[in-house]
Amino acid sequence: MTALIVNNLVKRYGDFTAVSDLSFEVPKGSIYGFLGPNGAGKTTTIRMILDIVKPSSGEITILGASTAMDVRNRIGYLPEEKGLYKKMKAWAVIAYFARLKGMNSNTAKSRAYELLERYGLGDFANAKVETLSKGMAQKVQVLASIAHNPDFVILDEPFSGLDPSNQQVMEQVISDLNSDGTTIIFSTHIMSHAERICDRILLIASAKKVFDGTVQQAKDLLPPRVRVSGDFSAEQLCVLPSVNSCYLDEDELLSVDIADGCSPQRLMSECFTAQLSLESFEFRQPDLHDVFLHLVGEEAKVATLR
């Protein structure tokens, strides 16, 4: 079962191409991460999925419908830039957006109180939004986007602006939703969240798809990473047969790119043979952060500078 199919999606603003020929599928009940540097086209893609912005070309099938407007009551959306009506009370905001999604007003009200209670904002249900802290307001907004029990939730940067404990609450919200069978797309550039939560990820850079697949598949793109330290120089290490290249990374450790067909074990024995005195030898699977930098590193910098 597929919750969302995106086919050859293109969006142009005049000469500028925001999204170029993007295709992917989101399985029903999965948590799907949208990753990519700033300005890559994540938000534009999300807006097109929601039918807020019309695509220049391409097709979108969401929950079996050709436009999100037809199934909008089954979709929840948290936009990237957060904001609420300042003069409204917390519960009223949540109930209002739930009613816009077709919930009747009594159910919406009790649902709003229930959600605020469950996620630790029970005491603030009757507080005006303008009196809430930024983090609290953001939680209220997240709750507003899911109050109507949607089948499909799109969260644009749900973690930004939250402190670590609230980020945890956010992760809790996402996993609660997922355990109810809700399909979730969320965009982020905090890789650790994506790695912990996502079943699948889509990586976009400069309007184009760079990667689409499971987190494991993404990690398999990079060879295992070895980092060493000791009383020797990078040059001494680089001459070893197993070493393709090496460099001093941000932690002042030598990060080694192992040559094809070689293993960390072999590198370690070569080190002993060459009598390099090792202080540490670290071998680990690459994480999404590495994959991200590997895949979009250069473009990300360009995009940030633009």
Binding site: R47, L50, I52, A68, R72, I75, Y77, L78, P79, E80, E81, K82, G83, L84, Y85, K86, F97, L100, K101, A144, S145
Partner: peptide, 14 residues
């Protein structure tokens, strides 16, 4: 207000 708060986006999705 709706525009500067980006509330409008949520409205437009509903």
């Amino acid at each position: 207000e709706e525009k500067s708060n980006r509330i409008i986006e949520v409205l437009l999705s509903s």
